[in-house]
Design a protein around this nucleic acid. Sequence first.
DNA 1: CTATGGTTCATAG
DNA 2: CTATGAACCATAG
Length: 180
Amino acid sequence: MIRRTIPTPDGEFAAGFSANGLRRLRFPGSEPLAASEPEFLAPASQQTEHWFELTREALLAILAGHNVPKLPPLDLASGTDFQRRIWQALLEIPAGETRTYQEIARRIGSPGATRAVGNACGANPIPVLIPCHRVIAAHGRIGGFSSDMDWKIRLLEREGSWPLAKSPVGATQGWFDLQT
DNA sequence: CTATGGTTCATAG
DNA sequence: CTATGAACCATAG
């Protein structure tokens, strides 16, 4: 695992690369990448530096509310097949749009697995680049977020998806019923 | 309130 | 080690 930090206007993110690509990303302020992760002590190859640059650009783009120009290869080996299918589906959500947990579940061919989608999102090793923040609950509820809810809201704001557009009818949406 | 599906953890063989 | 089951969820109805 090769670690790098990425300064952004929102603070310093931490990225970890394996031999196969970007393996994990962490928000500013969280604990340093676990020392328990197997160290991959290969010299920082030219390829890794290139991945790092792509990661930096992608991160800055999303923080600015834009679509990602080009993603680095993602090392999703830490997930199960099910999780990888979900993460893959999340990558297809463009900036400025959202999907519900149900839509993701249907997309990967397990219409009933909505709650499992929530689990998989929580296990997302690469937040922001894998846009778990664009997944919301049905009926205009926002759902949750493993890190601070502030991040989910902030990211959606930058993309123009907040307050949530899909307001079914009548009910107070967005600002008041979004806790827990 | 209940049903849902995948994952994780505890426990038993 | 595998098998089974219950609890856990960023849910839906």
